[in-house]
């Protein structure tokens, strides 16, 4: 049965500690100034790893039915489309300026 995975307490604590550690890392990297745009990439990268840990092992998606994963991925895809296509407008506006 896909839905009843029981994680060991040790395992859950392991994930928790990994999350604490990554939180510390993401704060720590702001002390060493990483140049634009890599600081954003690093910050988001760490956040993505943390979110993945939560989703896969706290929310048990790793052991869950494939369709639930599909749902989750779809929500991210549509969020990506929403932001991506909106940026096609907001980043490429070319406004005229009056001569007088």
């Amino acid at each position: 049965m896909s839905g009843h995975h029981i994680s060991s307490a040790k395992f859950l604590w392991g994930i928790g500690i990994a999350l604490f550690f990554l939180t510390f890392v993401t704060v720590a990297v702001t002390w060493i100034q990483i140049p634009e745009p890599w600081n954003i990439v690093v910050a988001i990268g760490i956040a993505v790893v943390k979110a993945l840990l939560v989703v896969l092992f706290f929310m048990n998606l790793y052991w869950d039915s494939k369709f639930n994963s599909l749902l989750f991925i779809f929500s991210l895809i549509f969020f990506g489309l929403m932001i991506g296509i909106t940026l096609l407008d907001t980043l490429f506006r070319n406004d005229p300026t009056p001569l007088f």
Binding site: S2, G3, D64, S65, F67, N68, L71, F72, F74, S75, L76, F78, F79, M82, I83, T86
Partner: peptide, 23 residues
């Protein structure tokens, strides 16, 4: 299983709702 899938579907809506603010 139904309840859990329902929740996942709801999570999708939550992500899109916060997604608006992230946009």
């Amino acid at each position: 299983e139904s309840a859990k899938m329902g929740m996942w579907v709801f999570i999708v809506t939550e992500i899109l709702m916060f997604g608006g603010l992230f946009v």
